[in-house]
Design a protein around this nucleic acid. Structure first.
Lengths: 193, 193
DNA sequence: TAAAAACATTGAACTAGGACAAGAAAAATA
DNA sequence: TATTTTTCTTGTCCTAGTTCAATGTTTTTA
């Protein structure tokens, strides 16, 4: 049950069994059906969720009402509007919604602080997770600016091979920063090559 | 001398004077003239620099040889290719160059580890700094996808009012993900409004 | 299993922004 | 101060990607 998340958190910082026991004792298991909103813009984000099973999207809505998907989180990924929400006590700008039936382990600001108080080395693990998210986001920013729609789509397929079977195409388009119609044309062009 | 950086690092985690003494004792002061490359793609990034004075740009070079600026770092900002470089021991993909004569405080992987060993609460401060960088980068990604060139430029001017006087326009264009020529046209259009 | 809803495709017309080229202005350097 | 280099502007032409609308396809729901 806990193996997935324990492997994930130990990836850059090895923890002993007592530390992992504390870690596991503080988190909450949660199951949620598909199409559930976990967070709405305007609310405070009071969780960090580790995806055990399922798929989630995190998105903004722009001035014209169009969605821009920032992140897909599938098995073994973390999702939260960690950014400002929790530490700055500002309401979130983003939406988080399940796309499939999901199960999660959840930390709240309180349980996370309790974790750091009882086992301070988790600060380090979360720092490194954060660093990796930053790296991924920076690379995504570069790709968004520098690459064509076709390149972005092809690289998306390589990087997330299962995701294109699991989520609707217009979500992928939104993630890549292109229109759903144009993605369809890109796919057509690729298919006949 | 140390006040700037001590204020910065204490912003989310208050440190006592002994902790700050350790912090200050481990960092190295460095002055560098303008147009100095601090990091080239292919190298390992072995520093994290806090800008005391001056301005730095961090950029990728895309497949066509065009630059894409990821970050400007001015006074009180941190700059590094922290992302993969240090913790994954992979060579960097980015370039970091001074645009003005600069002074920095520098941490290396070794001095940073020594800091964490001697004063573990700095893990927390760096975790939160990292979180804030992630928030900024995510918002930038959203702006890049969802906003027009004019909107992006106007918001850039609001957000970094001094920077447009300090760096060449084509760098700002590169940061915004538009061509230098088009930025010039955007400015023309704004000016006559 | 029928109807409704959501999703994907295709085409035609349009536009934001790019690429190129040439000249003007400003800044760095000798 | 002259000159070389870098930066900025402006115009023309071009294209990657958008928008809208219509149609087809798949999935969901009753």
């Amino acid at each position: 049950m806990y193996e997935q998340i324990n492997t994930n958190i130990s990836r850059y910082v090895p923890f002993d069994s007592e530390e992992l026991r504390i870690f596991n004792s503080l988190m909450e298991y949660k199951q949620v059906p598909k199409k559930t909103m976990l967070l709405q813009a305007g609310e405070m984000c009071n969780f960090e969720a580790f995806v055990i099973k399922g798929c989630v999207r995190k998105y903004y809505i722009d001035a014209n009402g169009s969605e821009v998907i920032l992140q897909f989180a599938i098995e073994n990924a973390w999702v939260s509007d960690i950014s400002f929400s929790i530490y700055e006590h500002k309401p979130s700008q983003v939406y988080i919604e399940t796309l499939e039936d999901c199960s999660f382990f959840i930390f709240t600001p309180e349980t996370k602080e309790a974790l750091f108080a009882q086992a301070p080395r988790f600060e380090r693990a979360f720092r490194i997770l954060m660093q990796r998210s930053l790296a991924v986001t920076q690379e995504r920013l570069f790709n968004t600016i520098a690459k064509s729609a076709t390149e972005k789509y092809v690289e998306f397929l390589e990087q997330y091979p299962t995701l294109s079977q699991r989520v609707a195409q217009h979500y992928i388009a939104s993630y890549l920063g292109i229109s759903a119609e144009f993605l369809s044309k890109v796919r057509h062009k690729i298919a006949k090559t």
